[in-house]
Amino acid sequence: MNLLLSDHSFPKDLPQKEENHYIDLTQLQIKNCLGCFGCWVKTPGKCVLRDDAVKVYPLIARSKNLIYVSRLYCGCYDEPMKRMMERAIPMQQAFIRLHHGETHHVQRNVVEKKAVIIAYGEIPKQEREIFKKLVERNSHNMLFSDWSISFVSEEHLEQTIRAEVDAWENC
């Protein structure tokens, strides 16, 4: 399965295939994570907040190819994407394992994925460096087998998204 998750509108004429899913976060109602650990200790694998996020994280878990499109803020994903990532922790267990020599949460049925992160906007060099380190850390916690980051202006965002979606054909 292939998933595009974006905090920005994207081209409406992307290839319509059963295995492709395109999600525009701006069209969804997603609240902040409560930090209640309910998805670990009360209803394992299921968030207690029943808003649109519950439709998204099962798709993230199942996707083999994943494209995140996000504006950055201070070297971090901006709020909409960050909020969604926080709401995706039902994909993990509370329990800790060793992964690449570090302690990380055990994953539930999460497919190892190739991730492409498209960070858009005017992004200074130092902010890019912070973001690269963040994605590297995410790769351990989000089962990225392979990942890359494209820094693009908002003006070039649409064509970058289109090119990355087209690249799914060769995966």
Binding site: W40, K42, G45, K46, P58, P90, A94, F95, N109
Partner: peptide, 24 residues
């Protein structure tokens, strides 16, 4: 620590270790 946390909600270790994510 987490097993004890789960116990407070009558959730067993086996349930907490479920690989299922909702929608499956």
């Amino acid at each position: 620590y987490w097993k004890n946390y789960g116990k407070q909600f009558h959730t067993s270790e086996e349930e907490m270790r479920s690989l299922k994510i909702e929608g499956e």
